[in-house]
């Protein structure tokens, strides 16, 4: 009997992990990725929390396994339609090509919040307001510079941009931006020890292993200033610096200051394709647009549509380890499912 086939849609860390797990369990997987490269968001990140592992190392290992295992990969292929019909599923790409399999795992990931929506923070208006993703680009290039080419001497990092915000209808917490804020603050201090760094937060959410330790290191070893308070707005000064206004809520007093650079910790949002796939397949969608499994426990990676499984940040904000673990779970659910088919 020919090996059962499973198509994995999206070649980020979750999709690659799912494909590897399928292959190791006797299934013939096929991985379809829209971009020219595999790796998803990690292709843009420099060093990862909590240990500073280079992002390239993580995806490099996965790409190596994919090729060692001879897993069929389609690049530059964007899936536009998923059509289940009893016992198999058809996947259609925007270029019109078609693939068929017994099951599908959706690992299409997340979108970065578009910071221009929060106009009050001046992204793309003031030259020294950047996002966490832009800062990763600078770390990758090897230096952090203000718009005029100078080294920053003071940087404010604002948490929760595009998350936990009723004003834009995003109720969810993006989960990784607190620890990213801590990580980036430390990296700034490592590169520029004289730079003053301020993190403005609503709550510090240090849920992962090693996160609280990193927070303490940021406080004690790097003397990063943590201010509990949300920046309400900022303005540009004549010398292109950024003037910010917040409340230091622990002091119960308004606070203002001018910094060379403001970094917005942008959140994760559900891609528009989630809603499309969910309605075509009749599977659930969370209030914030992430794909839903049948329950929050053992059924988190199975959906109400037979043969369709979900994993990674397509189902909600997660770190890399969690995305990979969920991918393994979804792959094993798919293995059980296809092996039950006659």
């Amino acid at each position: 009997m020919a090996a059962k086939r499973v198509i994995v849609i999206g070649g980020g860390v979750a999709g690659m992990q799912a494909a590897i797990t399928l292959k190791n369990n006797g299934i013939s997987p096929m991985l379809i990725e829209r971009d020219i490269n595999l790796g998803g968001k990690l292709t843009r990140w420099d060093r990862l929390f909590p240990c500073g592992t280079p992002a390239n190392e993580v995806i490099g290992k996965q790409i190596e396994s994919l090729s060692e295992l001879g897993i069929r990969t389609v690049l530059c292929g964007e899936v536009s339609e998923i059509t289940p019909s009893d016992g198999h599923v058809e996947v259609t790409l925007t270029d019109g090509s078609n693939y068929e399999a017994e099951a599908v795992i959706i690992t299409t990931g997340f979108d970065l919040f578009n910071a221009t929506v929060k106009e009050e923070y001046g992204y793309k208006i003031y030259p020294n307001v950047i996002t966490s993703a832009d800062l990763e680009d600078m770390f990758k290039e090897g230096e952090v510079r203000c718009a005029d080419g100078s080294e920053p001497r003071s940087v404010a990092i604002l948490h929760c941009v595009g998350s936990r915000d009723s004003q834009i209808g995003h109720g969810h917490c993006s989960r990784v931006c607190c620890i990213t804020g801590v990580k980036q603050a430390i990296e700034l201090k490592q590169a520029y020890p004289d730079c003053e760094v301020y993190n403005f937060y609503m709550d510090m959410r240090m849920f992962g292993s090693g996160y609280e330790e990193l927070y303490k290191e940021a406080q004690q070893r790097y003397r990063i200033n943590f201010v509990r308070g949300r920046i309400s707005e900022c303005s540009g000064t004549i010398d292109s610096r950024v003037r910010i206004k917040a409340e230091d809520t622990l002091a119960g007093r308004p606070l203002k200051m001018t910094v060379d650079m403001l970094v917005l910790m942008i959140g994760k949002q559900a891609p528009a394709s989630n809603a499309k796939f969910a309605s075509e397949l009749g599977i659930g969608l969370s209030e914030d647009g992430f794909l839903k499994g049948v329950d929050n426990f053992d059924g988190a990676t199975a959906t109400s549509c037979e043969g369709i499984f979900v994993a990674g940040t397509a189902t909600g904000p997660k770190n890399i380890g969690e995305s990979m673990a969920e991918a393994v779970s979804a792959a094993m659910k798919a293995v059980e499912y296809v092996n039950r088919l006659s």
Binding site: Q219, A251, R253, P254, K256
Partner: peptide, 28 residues
């Protein structure tokens, strides 16, 4: 009055933090 970090002198804070390193760990 608002706390204005552009003008406030934080030299005492720096000295306290140097003498008592654990002070920086406060979470309020």
């Amino acid at each position: 009055r608002a706390i204005d970090l552009d003008i406030n002198d934080r030299s005492i804070a720096r000295q306290v933090a140097a003498r008592v390193p654990s002070w920086s760990l406060c979470i309020g």
